[in-house]
């Protein structure tokens, strides 16, 4: 993977976001017996098919590719649930639905790619719903970026991949506004506050020493 995207998208590229996402746990139904694995990242308990176990997503995807297990999709990733969330999102134009996990987009992508047959039968419908959900939320992000200020931006319940998408741009705008406003009263006060928070302890300790 080339990493010249770093400057553009901030500290993380989409591929790295997906990599981080693979560390989260997922429930599987193993098809084969496996002794416990002692990995650096943690201990993988032995598999006793058809008992369910919880393992990291990357291992689950690997075993799935080798047809050694079935992945149990997380409860939120089902067509009816996504449809419900999509409805909430469309009805509340100034709110991101809090029922989605932080890594929803990348988890859904990885699972749709890795185990489309485990997702309750109709992965095509799920794909359409997720695309719709993403577009609705992108629209809201766009709306929110139009209201950027020099000091403050709040978008609750935004996913990590969605944050990665807007981080570079939002950073540029906020920085630009801060520089333009730097000569006014607010800017000066902000500058002072930043300086005080940085040097405050030095001053206090100096006073303490000399006093």
């Amino acid at each position: 993977m080339n990493n010249n995207n770093h400057s553009a998208s901030g500290p993380l590229t989409p591929a790295e976001v997906a990599f981080l996402c693979e560390a989260q746990s997922v429930t599987i139904i193993p098809r084969q017996r496996l002794d416990g694995l002692d990995l650096i990242g943690g201990y993988i308990p032995p598999f006793h098919p058809p008992q369910r176990t919880t393992i990291p997503l990357w291992l689950a995807l690997l075993l799935k590719r080798q047809r050694r297990c079935n992945i149990v999709p997380p409860p939120w990733l089902s067509a009816p649930n996504i449809e419900r969330i999509l409805k909430t999102e469309t009805e509340n134009q100034n709110l991101f639905c809090p029922d989605l996990p932080y890594r929803w987009l990348e988890t859904a992508e990885l699972l749709l790619e890795g185990c489309p047959d485990d997702l309750g039968g109709d992965d095509g419908e799920l794909r359409v719903l997720l695309r719709g959900l993403r577009e609705v939320r992108q629209g809201k992000v766009r709306e929110g970026l139009g209201k950027l200020e020099a000091t403050y931006l709040q978008m609750n319940n935004l996913g990590l991949l969605e944050i990665t998408e807007v981080r570079g741009f939002a950073k540029g705008v906020v920085d630009g506004l801060r520089k333009i406003g730097a000569s006014t009263g607010v800017g000066l006060v902000l500058g002072w506050m930043m300086m005080i928070s940085r040097w405050g302890w030095c001053f206090i300790s100096m006073v303490f020493w000399t006093g």
Binding site: N5, A8, S9, A15, E109, L110, L112, E165, G172
Partner: peptide, 23 residues
């Protein structure tokens, strides 16, 4: 610079997602 940043991050996400869904 801002345009370039926004364009490239959008492009990276799009490339990532379409890579995935086309398998």
């Amino acid at each position: 610079q801002l345009f370039k940043t926004a364009h490239e991050s959008a492009k990276a996400i799009r490339a990532f997602l379409s890579d995935r869904s086309s398998g």
